[in-house]
Design a protein around this nucleic acid. Structure first.
Lengths: 201, 201
DNA sequence: CGCTTTATAGAACGATCGTTCGTTTGTGTC
DNA sequence: GACACAAACGAACGATCGTTCTATAAAGCG
C-alpha cells in the first residue's frame, strides 16, 4: 500500500469516528484536517470533493458493518441461531467498531431520507442490502425447520430492524440501561411467535 | 395576539416544515429569512439566538404531535382501542402535520443523541414524555382487561416505538409501499401476544 | 392626533465553509 | 544521485454562517 492509500485510510478512520458524533452531513474538512494534523488542501486532494469524502465514509461504514456484524454471524449454522447471532452482533457493533456517537448508517438514514442525491442513494443501497440479508437469513431458518413454513421473511426482517432502532434510541438518548435486554426479549418473543411448536408438529 | 406573536408563529410554521427536510440542526437563519421574505436581523430578533429558534421548533413539534396524534386518540375508550388509535395517528402524522420531509422529532433524536446541550435535553424530554404516555396507555389496557395482567407496559411501549421507527425508515428511505401495512401487522401480532385469551380465561 | 413601544430593515462583523491554485516537499525508480 | 511523479502545504477565493449595531417604519395606546 503506497503512501497515498495509507493516509487516505487514516483520514477515513478519523472521519468515520467523527461522523459517528456529528453525522455524515456534519463532517467538516477544516475540523478533519485539524484532527489528522494535515492541511485542508492536502486532505481535500485525497477525495476531490466533500461529497466524495462523505460517500467514502458511508462505504467504509458498510464494509465494517459487514465485517463486524454479518461475517462472524455466518459462522453459525443457518437457522435461528444465525439470526440471533446477527442481532447480538448488531446490538454490539457501535461498541466493537469505533463509533463513540452511535451508528453512522442509521443516523445518515434519518438525515438523508428526504434529500435526493448520491448520499441518499448510498445509504439506501446499504440498507436495502442489509434488509435482503436479513430476509434471506430468515428464509433459511424456515427451510431449516426452525420457523413455521408460513413465516413471512420480509415481515420478520422488518420487525427486527424496528427492534434494533428503538434499542439504539433508548440506549443513546433515553439512557435506558435495559435497552439491550428489552431488545433481546422482543427478539425472543418474535422468534417464539414464528417458531414451529415442537409439541404439535 | 399582537403583531410580534403573529409573525413569530409564521416564522415557526416555516421553520417547522423546513426542519422536516433539512433537520433541526440544518436550519439556517438566512434561508429561513428568504422563505419568510424577512431580513435576517428582523427574523433573528424574534428568538435571540439560533439555538433558541431550534428549541422553539422542537417545542412546536411536540405540541403538534400531542394535538394530532395523542389528543384524538384519547377520545377512544381506554384499552387496546385507544392504543391502536395512537398507532394509527402516529403512522399518519407526518402527512397530517406539515412534515414533507418526515418526523422532525425522530430526526432530531438521531441527530442530537450524542451532542450534549439544550437541544438534546429538549428532544429527550419529549421522547420520555411520549414513552410515559405509551406506558400508561398500555397499563390502562391491562386494567381494562384487554391485555394480560402480567404484561410489562414498558416492554410493550418499547416495541411500539420500534415498529414506528422502522415504518418511517422503510417508507421514506426504502420507498416501501407496504410499510404501514407491515407496521399494523406487527402491532396486531404484538397485541394478540399480550391479549387475554378470551376462550381460556 | 402624538407619543412610546415594538417590530423590521440594512449594513457590517469575524468566523468558517468548500474549493482552487501554485509551490514545495517527499517518495519511488532508473 | 537524477529524474518523474505523487503528496502535502499555504495562501487566497467567494459564499454563507450566526450575530451585532444603528436607524427606520409600524403598531399600540392615551
Amino acid at each position: 500500500m503506497g503512501k497515498g492509500e495509507q493516509t487516505r485510510q487514516a483520514i477515513l478512520d478519523e472521519a468515520f469516528s467523527l461522523a459517528s458524533c456529528v453525522g455524515v452531513g456534519g463532517l467538516s474538512i477544516g475540523i478533519l484536517a485539524e484532527r489528522t494534523k494535515m492541511s485542508k488542501s492536502g486532505l481535500f486532494a485525497h477525495f476531490g470533493s466533500k461529497e466524495e469524502l462523505q460517500l467514502a465514509v458511508l462505504r467504509e461504514a458498510q464494509q465494517r458493518f459487514a465485517e463486524v456484524v454479518l461475517r462472524p454471524a455466518f459462522r453459525q449454522p443457518r437457522g435461528v441461531a444465525r439470526l440471533r447471532a446477527i442481532v447480538l452482533n448488531w446490538l454490539d457493533w457501535t461498541r466493537v467498531a469505533n463509533l463513540p456517537g452511535g451508528c453512522v448508517i442509521n443516523a445518515a438514514a434519518a438525515e438523508f431520507d428526504d434529500q435526493p442525491g448520491a448520499l441518499r442513494d448510498e445509504v439506501r443501497r446499504g440498507l436495502i442490502a442489509l434488509r435482503r440479508t436479513l430476509v434471506e437469513t430468515v428464509a433459511k431458518a424456515v427451510e431449516a425447520g426452525d420457523l413455521r413454513p408460513d413465516t413471512d421473511p420480509e415481515q420478520l426482517a422488518f420487525e427486527l430492524e424496528g427492534i434494533y432502532q428503538v434499542a439504539q434510541q433508548s440506549r443513546r438518548l433515553l439512557n435506558d440501561p435495559d435497552a439491550d435486554r428489552r431488545a433481546l426479549f422482543a427478539f425472543d418473543r418474535l422468534v417464539r411467535d414464528y417458531a414451529v411448536e415442537r409439541g404439535k408438529e
